[in-house]
């Protein structure tokens, strides 16, 4: 049986195709302005990759902020449920998931049976999210993908306020003005994200195994800083951005 899941996030659109629960195709695209068009493109790409046709699929689940912009989806499910499902599939014992996405970060606790037991999401603020990192990378004239390497070059991070993205950007600019080395600023930014996400996570009683997902989990600089902040071991899946879409496809399989 073929099922599909599409996760239309604020930054990226992720889609997976499963054949009897096994991943046979996946794609990650920038969401852009037109979510419907991006969803359609992602959909065609996974069908092509998986050598399947739309007619073979009965259930398609959409998740993420843009989940209501997928006209061909048969069901919409929130990313909390989908991330929990996907995380549990790849890491069957997982008890906590920290997802750091483009515009929000969320912490999900799972019970022993894999049900969502509790969750928290960030406030109306982009600090501690992928957007924060993007804005800072731009100020530092770095590609987001280069941040991880830059972080490794510094022994310690610069002190940066983690309260507000806009003010933190001014702080970064003033650090640049003071001649602080770029790696030190980058490490400081990663620590700022970790501190913000960490304080959100500490609202819940955290239990291991603990998985980090979302686009930001690709940045080891943030993951290392977060592990230090929480004093816990963090696991990262091979494709942390696909966990939500995977969960959506698994839920589709149950329908």
């Amino acid at each position: 049986m073929l099922t599909a899941g599409l996760d239309i996030g604020s930054v990226s659109t992720n889609a997976v195709l499963l054949a009897n629960g096994k991943l046979i195709a996946s794609v990650i695209l920038p969401s852009g302005y037109n979510h419907q068009e991006t969803a359609e493109r992602a959909w065609q790409m996974i069908l092509q990759q998986g050598q399947a046709s739309a007619a073979q699929l009965k259930t398609i689940v959409a998740t993420g902020y843009g989940r209501y912009n997928v006209p061909f989806a048969s069901k919409q499910i929130s990313e909390i449920s989908c991330i929990a499902k996907g995380a549990r599939h790849w890491f069957p014992d997982v008890r906590t998931v920290i997802d750091v996405g483009g515009q929000d970060s969320k912490v999900i606790k799972l019970d022993s049976e894999g049900y969502v037991a509790d969750f928290v999401m960030n406030d109306k603020c982009a600090a501690g999210t992928g957007r924060f990192i993007e804005v800072m990378a731009q100020a530092l004239q770095l590609e987001v993908s280069a941040l991880e390497q830059e972080d490794l070059l510094a022994a310690s991070g610069a002190q940066i306020s983690s309260i507000c993205t806009v003010f933190a950007e001014s702080e970064v600019i003033s650090l640049i003005g003071q001649g602080v080395a770029r790696p030190k600023i980058v490490k400081g930014l990663h620590q700022a994200v970790a501190s913000r996400v960490g304080s959100l996570a500490k609202r819940l009683k955290l239990e291991e195994p603990l998985l980090v997902t979302g686009g930001v989990a690709k940045n080891q600089g943030v993951v290392v800083a977060l592990a230090a902040e929480l004093g816990l071991k963090l696991l990262v899946p091979e494709e942390p951005q696909l966990v939500g879409a995977l969960g959506a496809a698994l839920i589709a399989a149950q329908e």
């Binding site: 902020y65 929130s78 990313e79 037991a117």
Partner: peptide, 9 residues
């Protein structure tokens, strides 16, 4: 989004 997640939970 939060309320939908909560009701699903």
């Amino acid at each position: 989004n939060r309320m939908e997640s909560f009701l699903e939970m």
